[in-house]
Design a protein around this nucleic acid. Structure first.
Lengths: 345, 345
DNA sequence: GCCTATCCTTGGATCGTTCCAGGCAGCGCA
DNA sequence: TGCGCTGCCTGGAACGATCCAAGGATAGGC
C-alpha cells in the first residue's frame, strides 16, 4: 500500500489492531515481540492487519514501559585531536547503519567544550538514552569514570590512556603499528634517515605513534638522534621543521603524526625544488581528504573506522543484553595507503 | 551536589518530588512547565526539592503524554554532491548546538541510498521524531513531498529545484553568487580569460553556480566561448581539462565548481611549471580542508553553514509552535576566502 | 466421557507524565 | 453576612505500550 494511505488519519494503536484482528492487545504485542508464542494461523492473521493498517508501535509508550529508548548517545564535537572531522564522518555513518540493524538510533548531543562531562548526566536522568559511545578519550576518560560509577552502559573509541588497568570496554586503533608501517615502508623504499614529525609530548596519541617509528628504526638498526621532532599540528610548523631537517640533518624520509603535518612537509619540498617520492619520501596519518587530493598524493596511514564502529556496536549489544563481555578491549590495526609521495620512480 | 550522588539509587519521579515537597504532582509539573501559575514561595519550595533530588522529567512519559519527542530526525548520508563530508560536519555541529538550546536533540538515521524516502516513514509512524531536516535535495525533493502530504514538519537545506513554486520551508546558499564572487575576483586581479570548470549539465547545483560565472563574465563584457567546461567531480578530470584550456584557450583564470576540481587545476599548473597566483588564478568552491592545506593555498567560496543551521532551526521552531511562517524560503550568501592561488605578488 | 497438561489468549495493572475539571481559600463589594 | 470572583492547588483520567496472573480451548490418556 502507499505510504500516503498508511500515514493518513490517526495513528493506529495496539488496541486498533487487536480489535480489527479479533484478538487481544497482548496477542498483537506478542506477534511483534514473541511471535513464537502464537499459533501460526493467528500470527498470520495479526500480521495481515498490522500490514494493512501500517501499524508501528509507539516508541514513547514502549520506552516508558520497558525503560529502554533504543537510542545511543554520542557527544558530537566539532573537531578533535588525532581524528579530524572527515574521519568522524566515516565513523558516525557506520555507527548509524550498524545500530539501525537492531532498531537503535544515534542521538547527538553537545556539551560545554571545556567540560568533558557536560551533557551525559541530563540524558541519563531523563532516561533518554540506553547507552553512550564516547570518542574524546585523548585527554583522560572522566566520562567513562562517571558512567561506570552510575552503572550506565558505554563503550569508548580510544583506550584509557591514564589508567591502562581500567576495565571498561573500549575499541582503539594502534597508532604505534601505524607509525611502524609508515617507517618500515620508508626504509623499504631506500630511505635511511627517516625523521619523525609529531606532536608535543603531552599528547598520548602522539607518543603512541612516535613509539612505532622509534621501534621500527631500532629494529632496522638505524640511529635516530636528532630525528624525532615535536611540533604543533599545523601546516606551517611542519613546513619549517621540515626545512631544518632537510638542510641540517640529511633527512630523506618523513613519518608524520598527521596528514596536516605531512602536507606541510610537501610544501617544504616544493619550496626547495625537491620531488616528493623520487627525492624525499613522506607518509601522513589518517588518510584524510587532504592526503588524497594534495599534489602529488600523500601516502598515509588509514584507520579502519568502519570496523571500529562495528566492534563498538557489537560490544554495546553484548552489554545491553546483559551478557558478560568476553573481551572488553579490542585493538585494531591500521593499514598503509601508498600514494606518489613515497614512490621513487 | 555531586553528579554521583544525584545518580545513585532509583530515579526520582514527579510523585517522589511532590510527596517530599508536600504538594501534588500537578504542582511539581507546573513548577517545571508553567512556573508563573505557582505562588512564589511554593515555587521556591518545589524547586529546592527538585534540585535536592536531582530530578529530571522522564522523557518517555512526557513524550507519550504530549506527543512530542523533542527529537529532530536527520538522515545521515556518507557523502553528497556539492556538500562534502567535512562541510556536513560544520553544519551538523551547529544544528546540534542550536537545537539543544530548546531541549531538542538530533536523531540520526540511515536509509537505503537508492531510495531517498527510506527511513522517514518508520520514524513518523512510531512518533519518534517531531520534525525532519532534509539535506539531500539535489536530486529532487520526494521526501519533502511525502512529508508535506502526511503533514509532518520539516525544513530542507536546499531549494526545491524541480518545482520552484513549491512552498515548503527551505534554506539555501546561492551558488550563483558564489561563482560570481569568484569570477569577479579573478577579473579584478587582472585575468581576462576566466574559464568555468564545472559539473555535468544534469547537476542543478552545478548549473546554478555556472550561471554566476556566466553573469559576471557578461557584466564585464568578456567573451566566454569555449571557456565553460563540464567534467565529473574528480582531481584527474579537472587536471586534464585544465591542461587543455591552458594550452589551447589561453586561459589564465579558473572558477571551479568544487575544491576537488580546483585542486586538479593546481596539479596541472605544477606539471606545466606555472605558478598558482602569479601566473594563473584558481578559485575553488566550499572551502574544504583540502583548499586550506593544499599548496600554496586555494582561494575558495565559503558557505555560511553555521548560519544555515541556525536559520533552519529557527524555521523549525516557528513551525513546531504552530505559528504561521512569515518567510518560508531563505537564501543566504556565500563569501570568498582568498588564499595564494589568486595572489599575484 | 472425564481429567490433566499444554498451549494460546485474555483483561487488569503499570510505567511517569500532562490534561482536565473541580475544590478551597481569600478578597472585594453590596 | 452573603455572593461572586480570582488565584492556587488537588486528584482522577489518559497517553500506548508491556508485564503478570489467570482463564479457556485443545489434545491426549485412561
Amino acid at each position: 500500500m502507499s505510504p500516503s494511505r498508511r500515514l493518513t488519519g490517526p495513528q493506529p494503536t495496539l488496541a486498533t489492531v487487536a480489535q480489527r484482528a479479533g484478538v487481544s492487545r497482548q496477542t498483537v504485542s506478542n506477534a511483534l515481540n514473541n511471535p513464537e508464542l502464537l499459533r501460526p494461523d493467528t500470527l498470520v492473521r495479526v500480521q495481515a492487519v498490522i500490514d494493512e493498517l501500517g501499524y508501528t508501535p509507539n516508541r514513547a509508550a514502549r520506552q516508558l514501559r520497558t525503560r529502554s529508548s533504543h537510542l545511543i548517545g554520542l557527544r558530537f564535537e566539532p573537531a578533535q585531536e588525532g581524528t579530524s572531522n572527515a574521519l568522524m564522518d566515516r565513523f558516525v555513518h557506520t555507527l548509524v547503519e550498524t545500530t539501525a540493524r537492531t532498531g537503535h538510533h544515534i542521538l547527538l548531543f553537545s556539551g560545554d567544550p571545556t567540560d568533558p562531562l557536560d551533557g551525559y548526566d541530563d540524558l541519563l536522568r531523563a532516561t533518554a538514552v540506553d547507552a553512550f559511545v564516547i570518542t574524546d578519550t585523548y585527554a583522560g576518560t572522566p566520562q567513562a569514570d562517571l558512567l561506570r560509577r552510575v552503572g550506565a552502559p558505554f563503550v569508548t573509541f580510544g583506550r584509557p590512556w591514564d589508567d591502562p588497568s581500567a576495565r571498561h570496554p573500549w575499541v582503539d586503533v594502534s597508532g604505534a603499528t601505524g607509525a611502524r608501517l609508515a617507517t618500515e615502508h620508508l626504509l623499504a623504499v631506500g630511505h635511511q634517515r627517516v625523521a619523525w614529525l609529531g606532536w608535543e609530548e603531552t599528547s598520548r596519541i602522539g607518543e603512541d605513534r612516535r613509539s612505532g617509528w622509534a621501534d621500527a628504526m631500532a629494529a632496522a638498526g638505524v640511529a635516530t638522534d636528532g630525528l624525532g621532532v615535536r611540533i604543533s599540528d599545523n601546516v606551517d610548523a611542519a613546513r619549517m621543521a621540515a626545512h631544518e631537517l632537510l638542510a641540517d640533518a640529511g633527512v630523506t624520509g618523513f613519518a608524520c603524526a598527521s596528514d596536516t603535518i605531512g602536507i606541510g612537509v610537501l610544501h617544504a619540498l616544493h619550496e626547495r625544488g625537491l620531488r616528493p617520492g623520487a627525492d624525499v619520501g613522506v607518509v601522513g596519518f589518517d588518510d584524510s581528504q587532504g592526503a588524497q587530493v594534495t599534489w602529488p598524493g600523500l601516502t598515509s596511514v588509514r584507520q579502519p573506522l568502519e570496523q571500529v564502529a562495528v566492534e563498538i556496536v557489537d560490544l554495546l549489544h553484548t552489554i545491553l543484553s546483559l551478557k558478560a563481555v568476553q573481551e572488553p578491549a579490542r585493538m585494531l590495526e591500521p593499514s598503509l595507503v601508498v600514494r606518489r609521495s613515497t614512490l621513487r620512480d
